[in-house]
Structures are given as structure tokens and as C-alpha cells.
């Protein structure tokens, strides 16, 4: 009773400040900062690979299977290629394919989710059943199926991973849109006669974006792992000499007994980048969730 009687001058300000609020909380979230650090490391390695890499990743620059040394920080592989340089270029591939796949998945999933959640009814039912189909297939098998159907290559890899995750994004966006349909300001917009499309684009999508961004960050981690997984199964880039992390692990595995450090360096690179995106994703979730405010 008293609750209703009280005016709440702050409520308007609170909602407008969501993003700056989130940024403030993110800055205080130590795990998220560690994640950001890992990602920066990963991104710098990828972008600056041509500058920092001491050797050409495709060329033989030393004898076969050299131990780590000052010249070859991570040692050399069977063909005498510098592993450090190859790991740096590998970051480039993972970043490129991973980000590409997630952006593509967001596009596909976003459109499907927006249509399903925004319009509902029959279309919604069909799209949801379709996502059920894709989600019932273990994602790595789905990716395997797509790569075998389309042939090996970076673009195919990207597409395969994108298709594996698009259903998740579609469901997520649809879920938030359905929840938002009942939100006060959407109902308000409807009563003043705003068009369906306008409500969807202007009022609902921006608010439904938050969970999507969090999920996309987390999926980047799994995407990097999946890319390496496909590479490990021999479904990586078409050229087997490409310094893709998973493909490199196939070779590394053969010398696990004598040169276990190779597995450690390549595996470490994958783990660090995955941890980075996982930490950042968790941090984003915590700082963007107004329920956790206080």
C-alpha cells in the first residue's frame, strides 16, 4: 500500500544507465578483466602474427623436432618449422574463423529468433521445431556432417560452426522477445498504435540483445574449441600445412612420447583463448544482469 504511494524518481535514470552501469561493474570484476587480458593476448597474437612471428610458418627453419630454445621459443615440428610462429598464425585462423562463425550464427539465429519471437504463431512453431532438429544432433557431429558435405576449407568450417550455434541464438532471442512482449513499455507502445515492425525493431530488439551478446561471447570459446576439434579429426583447412591448432595437434600427437612440449604449447594456446572468452562472457552476464545489481 505504501509502496504504491511512493514516487520513484530514480527508476528512469536506472534503466538508461544500463550500459554505463555495466561497464562500471565490469571494471570491478576481476575475473572478467583476466578474461579481457587473455583475449587481448589472443587478438594481438592473431593480428600481429606477421610482425612478431620470427619465422615463416610454412618454411623449414631448423632441424626436425628441436627442443625449445631462444631461436625457437616453442621448438620446431617434424618438418623443422618454428612452432612459436605457427601458434601465432594459428591464432589468426582461430580468431578469423571463430569470429566469422559466431557473427554468421548471430545473423542466422538472430533473423530466425526475431521472426519466431516477433510474429509467433505458425512460423514460430516451425522455426522452433527446426531448431529442435538441429539441437538434437551433437554439435560436433553436425559440424562434421556439414564439412563432409561441403568439403574442407575455412569458409566451410566457418559455416559448419555457425550452423551448429545458430539454433541456440534463435531460441535465446525468441525467449527474450516473448518475455518482452509482456513488458510494460511494449504494451504501452502497442496501445498507442505503433506498428508491429516498429515495436519489434525499436523497442524489443535492443533489449533482447543483452543475453545474445553474453551468449555470443561464451560461444566464441566453444567455437575455438570446435574448430580445433574438427582440425584434429582431419576436417580443418583444405591445405594440411596450414598452421591451424587442431591440425597441428594431429602431428604433435605422434611425438607425444618424445616431445610432449608441443602438445602443451598448442593446447595451452587453445585453453587460454577459450578461458578468455568464458571469463569475459561470465563477467558480462554478471554486469549486464540488473537483477544482480546492489
Amino acid at each position: 500500500m505504501f509502496r504504491a504511494a511512493l514516487v520513484d524518481p530514480q527508476s528512469a535514470r536506472v534503466s538508461r544507465g544500463l550500459w554505463s552501469d555495466a561497464a562500471r561493474r565490469l571494471r570491478r570484476n576481476r575475473p572478467a578483466l583476466v578474461g579481457l587480458f587473455c583475449i587481448t593476448l589472443f587478438a594481438l597474437a592473431a593480428i600481429l602474427a606477421p610482425v612478431i612471428a620470427p619465422f615463416d610458418p610454412y618454411e623449414m627453419n631448423g632441424s626436425s623436432l628441436d627442443a625449445p630454445s631462444l631461436t625457437h621459443l616453442f621448438g620446431t615440428d617434424l618438418l623443422g618449422r618454428d612452432i612459436f610462429s605457427r601458434v601465432l598464425y594459428g591464432a589468426q585462423i582461430s580468431l578469423f574463423v571463430g569470429v566469422g562463425a559466431v557473427v554468421l550464427a548471430l545473423l542466422i539465429g538472430g533473423v530466425l529468433g526475431a521472426v519466431a519471437g516477433g510474429f509467433g504463431g505458425r512460423i514460430d512453431g516451425i522455426i522452433m521445431r527446426a531448431t529442435d532438429v538441429f539441437l538434437s544432433i551433437p554439435s560436433i557431429l553436425l559440424a562434421i556432417g556439414i564439412v563432409t558435405a561441403l568439403g574442407r576449407g575455412m569458409a566451410q568450417l566457418m559455416f559448419a560452426i555457425a550452423v551448429s550455434y545458430a539454433p541456440t541464438f534463435a531460441r535465446l532471442l525468441r525467449g527474450s522477445l516473448l518475455a518482452l512482449r509482456e513488458a510494460d513499455y511494449v504494451v504501452a507502445a502497442r496501445t498507442i498504435g505503433a506498428s508491429r515492425m516498429r515495436i519489434l525493431v525499436r523497442h524489443m530488439l535492443p533489449n533482447a540483445l543483452t543475453p545474445l551478446i553474453v551468449q555470443a561471447t561464451l560461444v566464441l570459446a566453444t567455437a575455438i574449441i570446435d574448430i580445433a576439434g574438427l582440425g584434429f579429426l582431419g576436417l580443418g583447412p583444405a591445405d594440411p600445412r596450414t598452421p591451424e591448432w587442431g591440425t597441428m595437434l594431429v602431428d604433435a600427437r605422434r611425438f607425444m612420447q618424445t616431445a610432449p612440449h608441443i602438445v602443451v604449447f598448442i593446447g595451452g594456446a587453445i585453453v587460454i583463448s577459450a578461458i578468455g572468452f568464458n571469463l569475459l562472457g561470465d563477467g558480462l552476464r554478471e554486469s549486464l544482469d540488473p537483477k544482480l545489481k546492489r
Binding site: G229, A252, A274
Partner: peptide, 18 residues
Amino acid sequence: SLFGVSIPVFVLGLALVV
């Protein structure tokens, strides 16, 4: 658990083997 979701099965598998 963060480590668990961030390490690929085959990397962990290879590490365990080593």
C-alpha cells in the same frame, strides 16, 4: 569448472596420456 569448459577433450586427453 572454468578450466573444464575451456579445455578441449582431445587436449585434456592428450595431456592425461602424457
